[in-house]
Amino acid sequence: MINLEHIFKWHNTGNNRVFLLKDINLHFDQGEFVSIMGPSGSGKTTLLNIIGMLDDASEGKYDFQGQNIYQIKDKQRSALYKENIGFVFQAYHLIDELTVYENIETPLLYQNIKSAERQAIVADILDRFNIVGKKNLFPSQLSGGQQQLVGIARAIVAKPKLLLADEPTGNLNSKQGQEIMELFQQLNKEDGVTIIQVTHSEKNAEYGQRIIELLDGRIEKK
């Protein structure tokens, strides 16, 4: 599904070139659940952003479903992104001014899905995540775990094939973290969603089928 070849990412500060990623070669198959680990500053988030098309590599080749995304048009690329990728963040990043329901609905708005259909999809998700009772609350009225649940619901509402999670349990306690991980596992097994997560926690990383370890922008261990 995803193929990264000789991916480099750098910043120029003054005369120095600071490398964030060096020569990354990775392959992910449809339906995998992969954890990326590594100490702070090792380039985990950068790698995830590049996979998620939020950021571009400075050099290298990135194939997504067989298309070289640095060569296709912007329009095609955003279409590819919209249809296939969902994001979950450590800080949840819900829109404060919108209710739970509206937050989850937003990605569907951008996909131009009709109102009736939207209602059905969102109702479905709310039901599945057991948050129907909270649909009219604002993010600030929820606990961290609940917010992250909404974050995940929002990420998968448009049925993406790839779910990218940047330390999804980083702001949660261990019990909440475990629940989120179990949810990921369930999404992976039952819905066939490909999941790539960045994490600090050994325990959470174990939920993945394989672990990639980064150090100073290089892959240490696959």
């Binding site: 990043h93 829109i95 404060d96 990605p107 951008y110 448009a158």
Partner: peptide, 16 residues
């Protein structure tokens, strides 16, 4: 700016 970022992640096109 944060809201803009989130909306973009959720697939909002620039024109929207």
């Amino acid at each position: 700016a944060k809201e803009v970022g989130i909306r973009k992640v959720m697939g909002a096109a620039k024109q929207k």
